[in-house]
Simulated assay, not measured.
Amino acid sequence: MCNLYSNTLPPEMMRQLFKVDASRDQLGNAEPLPAIFPKRLAPIVVMDGDGERAIWNAHWGFVMPQVSKKTGEPIQPKAVNNARDDKLRTSSFWRTSFQERRCLIPATSFCEAKGRKPATYIWFGVTGEDERPPFAFAGVWRGFSGNYGGDKRELVTSSMVTTTPNELVADTHPDRMPAILHPDDYETWLAGQPKDAFELIRPYPAEKMVIHQSGEGLRADQGGL
């Protein structure tokens, strides 16, 4: 699973990389995001109601209503920020979003922790000419309307698809890794048939990935710079 990633791309570069017209960019003068945790807002690339690519800010984590086991009364909802690939087509929680509302999640690195007290924080990325080459995770999105954090809220929420890890990531997280998409597959993920989109979910080649930073003393919110 992934609970921390970075996106230090300026909006203009995101528009260029993901072929989004400036009129469909809702970010404004957004600041770089070196540490994105669950429940934070972060950019996603979607197909909007007109069938055009757009960049929206989304709450990271699908909102799952919960009730108290003791009283049966509603309590603070849970934010589910990872969607397992083996659940996308079978779980009612994910199925419709996978079929109808897929998105790209722009990133420049992601972090996994290994061990405890102290943990080793390892920041992964992809190979390329830049210091931190940009890439995109496979994601899904949906709207939420209801009580959240004590307030009535209207949100766009996103979740990151995870799959089995490649050899590089498995040493740190042997069970899951985020599904990274090749740029040639962005259109199919956003607008293709679900069966074709599902075939794109696979471990990103280990030889095309790098470890940007790793260390026991590395704070989790510093490695994404």
Results as ranks from 00 to 15, higher is better:
Arg142Tyr: 01
Phe37Lys: 10
Ile75Leu: 06
Glu199Val: 09
Met160Thr: 15
Asp151Met: 10
Ile201Val: 14
Lys195Glu: 15
Asp151Gly: 03
Ser97Lys: 04
Phe62Trp: 07
Thr90Met: 10
Asp196Lys: 12
Leu17Gln: 09
Cys111Phe: 05
Glu73Ser: 11
Arg116Asp: 12
Pro11Gln: 10
Phe37Trp: 10
Gln26Arg: 15
Val67Ala: 13
Leu218Met: 09
Ile36Arg: 02
Ala22Pro: 05
Tyr5Gln: 04
Gly215Met: 08
Leu168Gly: 08
Ile211His: 10
Thr71Ile: 00
Gly224Gln: 00
Glu207Gly: 13
Ile122Thr: 15
Val210Cys: 12
Arg24Asp: 13
Phe144Glu: 05
Val45Ile: 15
Ser158Asn: 08
Ala136Phe: 04
Val20Pro: 01
Gly61His: 03
Glu154Cys: 02
Ile180Lys: 00
Leu4Ile: 00
Asn57Thr: 11
Phe135Arg: 04
Glu187Pro: 01
Phe98His: 11
Asp25Trp: 02
Ala197Gln: 03
Lys208Gln: 14
Val140His: 00
Ala35Asp: 13
Asn7Gln: 12
Ala79Trp: 00
Asn147Met: 12
Val126Pro: 02
Ala22Met: 11
Phe93Ala: 08
Leu4Ser: 12
Phe137Met: 05
Trp123Cys: 12
Gln193Glu: 14
Gly72Asn: 06
Pro205Ala: 05
Thr163Pro: 05
Arg84Val: 08
Gly224Asn: 01
Glu129Ala: 12
Met177Tyr: 06
Ser91Tyr: 06
Asp171Val: 11
Met14Ile: 09
Arg95Ser: 10
Glu167Val: 09
Ser145Cys: 08
Asp171Thr: 13
Gly150Thr: 09
Asn7Asp: 15
Pro133Ile: 06
Pro134Tyr: 07
Ala179Pro: 08
Gly149Ala: 06
His173Glu: 07
Asp196Tyr: 07
Asp171Glu: 15
Ser91Phe: 00
Ser214Phe: 03
Ala42Glu: 02
Leu9Ala: 11
Glu131Lys: 11
Met1Glu: 12
Gly215Asp: 05
Ala35Thr: 12
Met177Ser: 10
Ala58Gln: 07
Ala191Arg: 14
Val169Leu: 05
Asn147Cys: 06
His173Ser: 08
Met47Gln: 12
Thr127Arg: 14
Ile122Glu: 08
Trp123Gln: 01
Val63Met: 09
Met47Trp: 02
His212Ser: 07
Met47His: 00
Ser158Lys: 01
Gly28Thr: 13
Pro203Val: 02
Trp123Ile: 02
Pro43Cys: 06
Gly150Tyr: 07
Phe110Cys: 02
Arg142Val: 00
Lys78Gln: 13
Tyr148Thr: 01
His182Phe: 11
Met13Ala: 14
Gly115Leu: 05
Arg153Trp: 03
Trp123Val: 09
Arg15Ala: 06
Gly217Ser: 08
Cys111Pro: 00
Glu129Val: 13
Trp141His: 07
Pro118Ile: 03
Met14Asn: 06
Leu225Met: 12
Ile55Gln: 02
Trp60Leu: 06
Lys117Gln: 11
Ala206Lys: 11
Arg153His: 08
